[in-house]
Amino acid sequence: MKIGALATATNTSVRLLRYYEEQGLLASHRLPGGHRRYDADAPAVVRRIRSLLDAGLPTRIIRDLLPCVREDGTVAMCKLETLEEHLLGLDDRISALSEARSSLAGLVRAARAA
């Protein structure tokens, strides 16, 4: 499959597919003319990448997770600890944002009352 066909099949830009490849998330084979050629499973791989990105995972983590992602998109136990660590990090950031929001709301209330 050529890069344009993969972009169309996954509703992803060619530029983004090249980025995934640069990050080691997606593999291609080069034809003698230098054109990229992707395996038949590339659309599924791109969908998995997009799903992991949607979950807030950075590409460096996704690169480590991809070998443990099953065809149905679930992650095997071999990387459960990585997912749990990232989830805890998100919980910490949500808590910090909640505290910041409360402080800001207090400042807004005080400004309106003055």
Rank of each mutant, 00 (worst) to 15 (best):
R60Y: 07
T59M: 07
I62W: 01
P58I: 01
S103P: 00
K79T: 05
E81P: 05
K79E: 13
E85P: 00
L83I: 05
C68G: 03
L88H: 14
R60I: 03
L80H: 12
S102T: 14
L53D: 00
L57Y: 05
D91P: 00
E99N: 10
A100Q: 15
S98T: 14
D91V: 06
A55M: 10
G89H: 07
A76P: 01
C78R: 13
G89V: 04
V75T: 09
L80I: 04
I62V: 13
A100M: 13
P67I: 06
V69Q: 02
A100H: 08
D72W: 07
R101H: 11
A105M: 12
V69I: 09
L97A: 12
L83E: 01
C78A: 15
G56A: 07
A100L: 10
D54M: 07
D54A: 15
E71S: 10
G106K: 08
G89L: 09
C78L: 09
L57E: 04
V75G: 04
C78F: 00
P58V: 03
T59F: 06
D54I: 01
R70A: 14
A55S: 11
S103T: 11
H86D: 02
S98A: 13
C78Q: 14
L87D: 07
S95M: 04
S102N: 10
V75N: 02
M77E: 14
I61D: 02
K79N: 12
H86I: 02
L65V: 09
A76H: 14
D92I: 02
I62M: 06
E84W: 06
K79Y: 03
L66F: 05
A96Y: 04
G89Q: 13
T74C: 08
R60D: 10
M77C: 10
L52N: 02
I94H: 09
R70P: 01
G106M: 11
L66T: 07
A96T: 11
L88W: 08
D92R: 15
D92A: 14
E85C: 09
A105S: 14
L104S: 05
L57M: 14
L83A: 05
A76C: 14
V75A: 04
R60V: 08
S98L: 04
L53F: 00
D64W: 02
L104V: 13
D54Q: 11
L87F: 06
A105C: 08
E81I: 06
M77L: 12
L65A: 01
G73F: 06
S102Q: 13
A100P: 03
H86W: 07
G73R: 07
R93S: 11
L80K: 12
T74M: 10
L83Y: 01
I94A: 11
L57T: 08
D54R: 14
L90F: 07
T74H: 11
S95H: 13
E85W: 09
A55D: 00
P67S: 08
A105F: 02
L97G: 03
D72T: 06
D91E: 15
G89Y: 00
E84D: 10
I62N: 02
H86L: 02
D64I: 09
L66R: 02
C68R: 00
A105P: 00
C78K: 12
S98R: 15
L57P: 01
G106V: 01
E81A: 15
L87K: 09
S95F: 03
C68E: 03
A76D: 14
A100K: 13
R70I: 05
